[in-house]
């Protein structure tokens, strides 16, 4: 399968990419920079194609990502993983960082979905779209209101994508992921992390492997009756 994945240079995106490559998929990966881990992956996997692209730019999705990078390749899945977090109290909300986060987390992914669906229509592909959402959209956390709102937007967009394009066999689902030990949560203090983990049934961070396995399942035919869902991978957040 040909799979487009965003945010592949580190954390969850890197784990998902590694997992999908090991299952023999052809990956079209996007990230802002190339980390050491990504370089290693590029050197060891011929079926990994990489594009340096900043998702803050929603205007060049068609030319840079679809015309030049993906070209005529039929896409079977899109994993919308890249995201940035703007953490602050609502009383400190500022327009500039809010808009910039919405561009990366919501607007550009919506444009990518547009061209993914167009690619799938052209090639008659019953493709699978997977958004990485966050438990913060469902269980509030102090300071995450703005970030959580981007994930809520994606969940609504995904549900409607599923309804609009289901007739063509195109599926869309969200993985509602709990807190992981990645860069995204690196600004939290050990006490804050501990408090968050205490709110889960399993009392620990979410294992990225569990998320990668679910992504893999949702891209496969095995999940062909699953669409419009939010699947919680959150260690049983209470």
């Amino acid at each position: 399968m040909n799979i487009l994945v965003t945010g592949i240079s580190k954390g969850l995106g890197l784990e998902i990419t590694r997992h999908l490559l090991e299952s023999g998929n052809n990956i079209f990966g996007i990230s802002r920079n190339q980390t050491e881990e990504l370089s290693t992956l590029l050197n060891t996997h011929k079926n990994l194609n990489w594009l340096q692209y900043d998702l803050a730019d929603s205007t060049n999705v068609k030319t840079k990502v679809f015309n030049e990078f993906i070209g005529n390749t039929p896409l079977h899945a899109f994993i919308n993983n890249a995201a940035v977090a703007y953490d602050d109290l609502i009383t400190n909300l500022n327009d500039e960082p809010l808009l910039s986060m919405y561009r990366v987390n919501v607007f550009t992914p919506m444009h990518i979905v547009k061209y993914c669906i167009r690619n799938m229509l052209l090639h008659n592909t019953k493709g699978s779209i997977i958004h990485i959402s966050s438990i913060s959209a469902h269980t509030g956390y102090k300071g995450l209101a703005m970030y959580a709102s981007t994930k809520g937007a994606l969940e609504a967009f995904s549900k409607n994508t599923a309804r609009e394009w289901g007739e063509k066999g195109i599926r869309s689902n969200c993985l509602v992921v709990g807190f992981m030990e990645t860069d995204m949560s690196s600004t939290l203090t050990p006490e804050q992390k501990n408090r968050i983990f205490q709110r889960t049934s399993l009392k620990k961070p979410v294992d990225p492997r569990s998320v990668a396995e679910t992504v893999s399942f949702l891209t496969s035919e095995k999940s062909n009756s699953i669409t419009g869902q939010n699947i919680f991978i959150d260690n049983g957040t209470i």
């Binding site: 669906i117 167009r118 229509l121 052209l122 394009w165 007739e167 063509k168």
Partner: peptide, 13 residues
């Protein structure tokens, strides 16, 4: 509407 979307994609290609 879905057919019209596919039409525009195929014509653009």
């Amino acid at each position: 509407s879905l057919d019209l979307a596919e039409l525009t994609v195929r014509i653009e290609a």
